[in-house]
Amino acid sequence: MRIALAPMEGLVDDVMRDVLTRMGGVDWCVTEFVRVTETLLPPKYYHRLAPELLNGAVTAVGTPVRLQLLGSDPTCLAENAARAAELGAPVIDLNFGCPAKCVNRHRGGAVLLTEPDLLHAIVSTVRAAVPSKIPVTAKMRLGYEDKSLAIECAQALAMGGAAELVVHARTKVEGYQPPAYWHWIALIKAAVACPVVANGEIWTVEDYLACRAESGCDDVMLGRGLVARPDLARQIKQHLAGQPVAPMHWHELVPVLQRFVGQVAGKVEGKHAPGRLKQWLSMLRQHYPEAGWLFERIRAVKAVPDIQAILAGLQVDEPLVC
Rank of each mutant, 00 (worst) to 15 (best):
W250H: 11
L77E: 00
W280D: 13
A100E: 15
M1Q: 13
H183C: 02
W184R: 01
A162M: 08
D18E: 15
Y181V: 01
A303M: 09
V205M: 04
T31R: 09
V36C: 05
D231P: 08
Y181Q: 06
P74W: 05
V254L: 15
H249V: 12
H287W: 12
A190E: 14
R48K: 07
H287A: 15
E115L: 08
G88S: 11
G97R: 13
W182F: 05
E9P: 05
A100K: 14
D219T: 08
H183N: 03
S124E: 14
R276E: 07
A169Q: 08
L257Q: 09
V301W: 12
G292A: 07
G313Y: 08
A228C: 07
D218N: 13
D218W: 15
A186C: 14
L277Y: 00
L54D: 06
A156S: 11
L209P: 05
A78K: 12
L222R: 13
K237M: 04
R234W: 13
S148E: 10
Y46C: 00
T21R: 06
Q286M: 07
L240E: 10
L69Q: 01
C29E: 02
I202K: 11
Y208D: 08
V111N: 11
K237F: 04
G216C: 08
N80T: 03
A158L: 05
L40A: 01
E214L: 09
P319V: 02
K101A: 15
H272Y: 14
V197Q: 00
E38L: 02
V15Y: 05
K139M: 05
D93G: 14
P230R: 03
S132F: 04
V12T: 14
R299C: 07
T21V: 11
P42L: 15
V30W: 01
N104P: 06
A121R: 15
M221R: 01
D306G: 01
A163S: 13
A84S: 09
V91I: 14
E115D: 07
D146Y: 06
P244H: 04
L112V: 01
I3T: 04
A50L: 04
A85H: 11
I310Q: 13
G62F: 09
C153Y: 00
I298K: 05
D73W: 06
A138W: 01
T21C: 13
T21S: 05
V30M: 06
Y45Q: 06
P90V: 07
W293S: 02
Q315M: 10
R35I: 07
A312H: 10
F96L: 15
Y208H: 11
R48T: 04
S132N: 03
I310T: 09
W203R: 11
C98H: 12
V34E: 01
E214V: 05
A193I: 07
G25N: 15
V166E: 05
A4C: 06
L222I: 14
